[in-house]
């Protein structure tokens, strides 16, 4: 049976450090190496920052639910918000040679995680599902 950890924060950027601390613990529980953990933390931070900036447009008191499922072969992290449905086409990662501030978050998420799935505008809100295979046991 999958282990499940749920973290609920408000959409205040000050909460990002709290979320990072929680995801670090989840990464350790999953058995990832320290550098892999810091990358997974970065992917989740980027996803959460996008929700704060784009779905909630900077409002600080909106809910964000982060559910981590530790399955037999993979870690699955589900980001859930109730903000504006962001057009997935518009949040596709930009070309890296287009040197301008912003637009790097989706590229970072996709580079780090094995699968990144957007399910936006559902009756229950927006979902972002990220999966990464667990490290092989020695």
């Amino acid at each position: 049976m999958a282990k499940k950890i749920e973290v609920r924060i408000t959409s205040d950027p000050q909460m990002l450090s709290v979320l990072r601390a929680a995801i670090t613990q989840v990464g350790q529980l999953a058995g990832f190496a320290p550098m892999e953990i810091s990358k997974i933390v970065l992917a989740v931070d980027e996803a959460c920052s996008n929700i704060m900036r784009h779905a909630y447009k900077g409002k600080k008191n909106q809910p964000i639910i982060v559910t981590c499922k530790l399955k037999p072969t993979k870690l699955e992290i589900i980001m859930h918000d109730f903000g504006n449905s962001v057009d997935v086409e518009k949040i596709r990662s930009r070309k890296l040679n287009d040197l301008r501030p912003g637009g790097l978050g989706v590229h970072i998420m996709k580079s780090i995680m094995d699968r990144v799935i957007f399910k936006n505008g559902t009756d229950e809100g927006n979902f972002l599902i990220m999966q990464k295979a667990l490290p092989k046991r020695q």
């Binding site: 990072r20 970065l42 931070d45 980027e46 920052s49 040197l99 501030p101 790097l104 978050g105």
Partner: peptide
Amino acid sequence: PYMDSSGVATLIEGLQ
């Protein structure tokens, strides 16, 4: 100890 893409974006702006 930690920087995300908003930090990187800020440095890109400084560079530009």
